[in-house]
Structure formats: C-alpha cells, structure tokens
Design a binder for these strands. Structure first.
Lengths: 185, 185
DNA sequence: GAGCTGAGGCTACTGATGTTAGCTTAATGG
DNA sequence: CCATTAAGCTAACATCAGTAGCCTCAGCTC
C-alpha cells in the first residue's frame, strides 16, 4: 500500500481540474478520488465534506481572481482601472467558465469563504477609491459595478446570450454606461 | 390501491412547492413523490426525468413571470415602463427567491424552455421598442437591461449583498443609470 | 352488463454518491 | 528499535435517479 502523499492543497488542485473538465455539477468526491488515485473515503483525511471542498475550491478561485485583478489594475487609476478590472473579470470567466461558476454568490455568509470574498470586494473598492465617492454613493457604485460585471459574465459563461455576436461591444457599452454614471455622482 | 389521479401539471405544482420550501437543491423526485402521496418511480408516468421536471418547473416560473411583467407594463411606456419592468422582476425574486433561481440561465438552448424564454425576452424587447432603437443599439440595450436586472436580482436573491441596507436605493441608482444610457443612444 | 385494454399505480432492483466506522500500515520521532 | 500518528484501505449505510415488470382500476366496446 504505497502512500499517495496527498494534502488538502493537492485535493483542491485535483478538484479544480475536475471542475474544469466536467463543470460544477461534475465536482464529485468519486471524481476527485479517481484523479488523485485514492479511494473516495480517503479524501476525508484531508477534507471535511464535499461542501467544505466546494468552499475550498471557491476560495482558490477567488484568490486566483484577486491575483489577476490586482496585477491588471496595478499602476492604473480612474476610468482606465475600472475598464481593465471589468475586462479582466470577463476574460477570466471566458477562460475558465466553470471556475467562475464555482465561486459562491454569497462568500461573506460562509466563514470559510468570507476572508477571500472580502479581499475580492476590496479590489473593487480600491478601483473606485479615486473617484472620491463618500458614504452611500460609494456603496451604490461598488454594488453597481459588481452587478454589471457579474450579470454580464455569468450570463455569458452560462451561454445565456443567444448569439456570441457583438458581445464584446455590448460589454463596452456597459462599461461606458457605468463610467458615465460615475461622473454624475 | 386508490389512484392519486396525478397529471404532469400536478407534479409540476408539487415540484414548485418543494422548490419554495427546500430551495433549488432540494428539488428531488423523492420529495415530489412524498408531497404528491405517490412512490417515486410513479412520477416517471408523468415526467421523463428529473432534468425534464426541472425544465418544466423553469417554464412554469418563466410563464408566471411573463404574466406579471405583462400586467405590470400594460399601458405604460418609456422610462415608466422600463422602471416598472425592473421593479416587478425584483419584487418577484424577493417573493420567490428559489423560483427565480430555478429559471434556466440559457432557456434558448433547450427546446423544452426555448419558447417560454423567447416570450420572456419579448417582454424586455417590447418595453424598449418605444425608444426607436435600431439594429445593434437595440441589441445592446436589451442585453444591458437583462444584465442589470439579472445581476442585481440574482445576487440579492442569493443573499450576496452583505447588508440589506439601502438595497432599494442601489436598484434605483441602477435603473437611473440604464435610463440615462438609453437617452445617449 | 361482461370483458378487454391501457394507463397509473406499485415493489424490487441497480448503480452512483456522500459519509461513517474501524482496520492496517507506512512514516516519523524518541 | 519501538511507539505513535497519520494516511490509506474495505465494508457498510442512506439517499438518489432510473429501470423492469407486475397489478389493478377505469373506461370503452360489444
């Protein structure tokens, strides 16, 4: 009985591969076990439950996203930073639609995902900081940015837009709409 | 063995109750069977599979939504109609968060849901018709409206906004943003 | 009214999945 | 070199979706 030398991180790695290949619904302990060369119950040595594994995968994806957004936005500001943030989110989701879908819609509600969720939100906040928004204006702007990005990207990743035609233009249109609304605040 | 006198419609009725009570994940053939007073395999006399039942439930919800949106928008036009449409979508999702979540994100991809999806989209199109948008402008506007509504409503229904504070204001802000963008087209 | 037919139930079963319990053994530290 | 611990394993259970095949009620025909 040679040991596989698994770790929690390795299990999450395998889980992400499974998500990429078989989608969110396909993330099953059996699939992860097969991919790691281990019997399914053995995974419980590294992960408390399927729900916990899903949360860990969600955190990993959020961290990947934070990394990319931070890099993309670095040394940019104003409309430029906002546009790049929005584009980077879309590009990530187009590259890894299943990963985008595995991110929890309410990360702050779950202690396991709250920290990563808050840091992801911080990136959105940081990009809007330069506009000098105060109080509720800042809140509305941040929420609106999130709504537009998530609305577009989730529909696109799910294949919800009929034809892919001119989708980039539609996104540009939405970016313009949001930037215009920032000027009016 | 007294007959239950089930029909496909009755099964869908029960399925919607189950969705309301236990959420989208809780929609299981066992739960529907229990609620209809029938053994689980008997459901296959009325429904081809769980996937088909989910599609039927999705269609039912879309039809309910179409009904409400149509009534709400009737004899309204312009910004008034758009705002009412957006509010009605949000109100429905707040009343029935699980039902909103059971709507397929890509109804047009599935023959079983395509017709209802197209009719739902038609309501969105109709509301924008009065603005005299042509060609790609009409497409971008419709998509944008859908993005904003779905983005906000899905995050809210999932409990994704940290605090419920001022959420109505944020939605008003988004409505204003969209209406302003229509004037610029 | 008798009987045939078919639809709508049922039970029994299979295979997949998450999860628990308990055993065994490999690695590690004294 | 042994004791402990952690990482595997098999066996088992509950819950699902789905299939096969039987039974019976209801309605239609003669």
């Amino acid at each position: 009985m040679a040991r596989a030398g698994l770790t929690t991180a390795a299990v999450v790695d395998a889980a992400i591969d499974v998500v990429d290949e078989r989608g969110v619904e396909g993330l099953t302990l059996a699939a992860v076990a097969a991919r790691t060369g281990v019997a399914a119950p053995s995974l419980y040595k590294h992960v408390g439950s399927l729900a916990e594994l899903r949360a860990l995968v969600g955190v990993r994806v959020m961290e990947e996203m934070i990394e990319r957004l931070t890099m993309a936005v670095l040394s940019r500001s104003g409309d430029d930073a906002v546009a790049v943030l929005m584009h980077t989110c879309r590009d990530y989701a187009l590259e890894h639609p299943a990963r985008y879908a595995v991110m929890p819609p309410d990360p702050l509600q779950n202690p396991a995902t709250a920290a990563a969720g808050a840091r992801l939100l911080d990136v959105f906040l940081a990009v809007l900081r330069g506009y000098g928004l105060e109080g509720s204006a800042a809140i509305h702007a941040t929420r609106s940015l999130r709504v537009i990005v998530h609305g577009f990207v989730s529909i696109e990743a799910a294949g919800g837009f009929g034809l892919p035609e001119d989708l980039a233009d539609t996104y540009e249109h939405l970016i313009g709409m949001f930037l215009a609304s920032l000027s009016d605040m």
